[in-house]
């Protein structure tokens, strides 16, 4: 049971937790937290594999993929929360123009 394998299994757990949260939770902020957790889980799996490679240094390719993933996940969070706030404002009748539902 090497350390990378332990982290990879925790990553798998986080993916399942995140997927559960995304499906079951209804509040948009909780769903966003779940999406971030699922992302962290996927990244843990990738980086654990990178650490376990026998090369003299960890495999840089998963590291680059995870850096890209972290930035994309932040973009997800920003768009999701802005959308949730705009919907909350619209449901309170702040600015919900576009009257015709067609």
């Amino acid at each position: 049971m090497s350390a990378p394998l332990l982290y990879a299994l925790v990553g798998a757990g986080l993916v399942s937790l995140g997927a559960w949260g995304l499906v079951v939770r209804t509040h948009p902020v909780r769903k966003t937290v779940a999406a971030n957790l699922m992302g962290s889980g996927a990244f843990l799996i990738l980086v654990s594999a990178a650490r376990a490679t026998p090369a003299e240094r960890p495999d840089p390719v998963p590291h680059a993929l995870v850096l890209t993933g972290i930035v994309v996940t932040m973009a997800t969070t920003a768009v999701a929360l802005a959308l949730a706030k705009r919907r909350a404002a619209a449901s309170e009748g702040h600015s919900g123009e576009g009257a015709s539902d067609g």
Partner: peptide, 17 residues
């Protein structure tokens, strides 16, 4: 901008994520 569009966009976003 309509309420229906915002609701649909939010569920679309989380399904897509």
């Amino acid at each position: 901008g309509s309420k229906a569009a915002l609701d649909a966009a939010l569920s679309y976003l989380f399904a897509s994520v």
